[in-house]
Amino acid sequence: MTLTAEGSAHRKLPSWQELAARMPNRHPQTTDEELDAFETTLQRTLRPVNAPVDFRQGLRRNLAVAAQRQYTGMQVEAHRSYRQGILIGTSIGLAGLVVGILLYLFFKPHKS
């Protein structure tokens, strides 16, 4: 059997599109409309829940109490940082004084 030029043309390799079409599809074509409808189904299924009323009211009260404490705490915090500043300033001053005395003692002219 001889192959004609015409016959060999019929046996050409398939294009990549043809190969792709033969491959098993992982995600079968889903239209946007189908996905939108599915999203709606999900919205009907995933039901939002509300916090129990007792819990909500209790937490609000606790937050109000905590807020009062925090305001008090902020004043204490500010007072503490003021005192901290005085302590740091005094410490630096004292350290400077000690260094000054040592330098004076080291460099003072010796009396013969």
Binding site: P48, N50, R56, L59, R60, L63, Q68, Y71
Partner: peptide, 27 residues
């Protein structure tokens, strides 16, 4: 003003609770 935070709380408490409930699965 703590009352203003109370308003924020009222605005979002259900949404935050819903999100957490769906993630942890118990009240």
């Amino acid at each position: 003003d703590a009352d203003a935070f109370g308003l924020i709380y009222e605005r979002y408490v259900n949404r935050i609770y819903n999100y957490i409930f769906h993630r942890v699965g118990n009240v």
